[in-house]
Design a protein around this nucleic acid. Sequence first.
DNA 1: CTCAATTTGTTCGTATGTATG
DNA 2: ACATACATACGAACAAATTGA
Lengths: 259, 259
Amino acid sequence: MAKLSLNYDRSRVPLYIQVASVMRQRIESGRWREGDKISTIEALETEFGVARVTIRQAIEILREEGLLDARQGRGTFVSGKPRERHWLNLANDFDAVVSSVKNNVIRIVHIEEEAQPPILGDNEGTLADAYALLRSVQYNGDEPFAMVNLYLARDLFLRERKRFTHLPALPRIVEMEDVTIRHCYQTVTIGVADPEISERLKIGLGEPTADCRLVLVDDHGVAIYAADFHYHRNCFALRRDLLDRAASGKPSSYRRKAS
Amino acid sequence: MAKLSLNYDRSRVPLYIQVASVMRQRIESGRWREGDKISTIEALETEFGVARVTIRQAIEILREEGLLDARQGRGTFVSGKPRERHWLNLANDFDAVVSSVKNNVIRIVHIEEEAQPPILGDNEGTLADAYALLRSVQYNGDEPFAMVNLYLARDLFLRERKRFTHLPALPRIVEMEDVTIRHCYQTVTIGVADPEISERLKIGLGEPTADCRLVLVDDHGVAIYAADFHYHRNCFALRRDLLDRAASGKPSSYRRKAS
DNA sequence: CTCAATTTGTTCGTATGTATG
DNA sequence: ACATACATACGAACAAATTGA
């Protein structure tokens, strides 16, 4: 492996933190299993191309996290696994989105009844006349795992102000008989925590998040609902079977179509 | 906004880099538009709760990236946007995956004909007898944007060793008449760059990546193909319309089902 | 039991980076 | 621009614990 010091310029993050990240990854991925003795400090020194102290600093970080246990004269051992990750599975169809949201424990932390409109992408419909902004945090027990900025068409918001300020908006919108949802655009990207997200999710500024945008477009082409879900990166996963067309009538297995 | 110094403990990343991340985000998101004069250093000092020099260091980073232009006596201006992001749209069905892979410019960088088997998830089928490991890098022009570790059932690999060592494997597997693909499991998570990825994608160690795992299971329940795609986070996006059931016969709009 | 090899723990000196006021 | 304090990183030497011959 090339010297890390060369890669160092690329990231500006302190070296020992970079090394710790990689080691944590090795434990998570199972490459280093619980109970294993990991390479000696000297070996890691060579592998990563950094000084002894730097390796020790990285080990110290993981020791504080309970992942490593270093014993003088014996070696360094894997003493635990990171908390289970990726327990949140992003819904893969509209019904699943609605029902997953329905059971969420949310806390509305900020409301603007007359907010700046959201910035819409190319194919995300046209803006409504006005929007309300509802900012909420979603909890799993005590742990915040997502922050949501929801731009809700103001006329819809005003119809049930009380309700929208306390409960998830999506199920209510679906219930409205005079609202037809034509499209539900979903975009998943990787973002970084701004001060607001950092504060709400208790993560570091600039740390990555899974950003999931959901835009509902009605039969007039208007984006009546535009929400940005910022998920804690550790809980986020999206799983699907690209060949599961049970609902679509397509064959559930694949053979070549033509020669 | 709370003092940044308070959040600092959470991330261990140098303060001025955190500040730079937030400023970059503001430019990307359009909150600071090109040509705009941004707040004075004094105002930023107050807003972020950090020292003057720290703000200046952050501005210097963005100046090197061509995003900001500081003029003595006038102020600091937004002078550009980050390179267009999220140009890569992850395929949403199996055919799209195959055809997107088909046109990829890849370079195989490492081969193990008898590799350790991959670690499979709960519902990703059973292991084949043996696997070959093919590591490749995908390019967009000169820019590497993804690194792939592909575990390919060894019997398949041996059938066309030459071909598999030069061209994307997936299209070839689909062509094989005696291979039936029953499932194509896809899992998207956020990972971090290990030394290998860091080196291949020219990004910093520990920086986030979009990790997309693809597992093909045949009609015997065997995982004949297990690939981990590690995408550069800036190019990655997943876009879909959760109500687009054109192919499925479901209604293409949504009204409530029952009272 | 002792010795040597191995491995982590500790300390020094030096240079540079980060952050404040 | 300066003075100050602390963090990061290197290399090297030595101390202490463990292991096995």
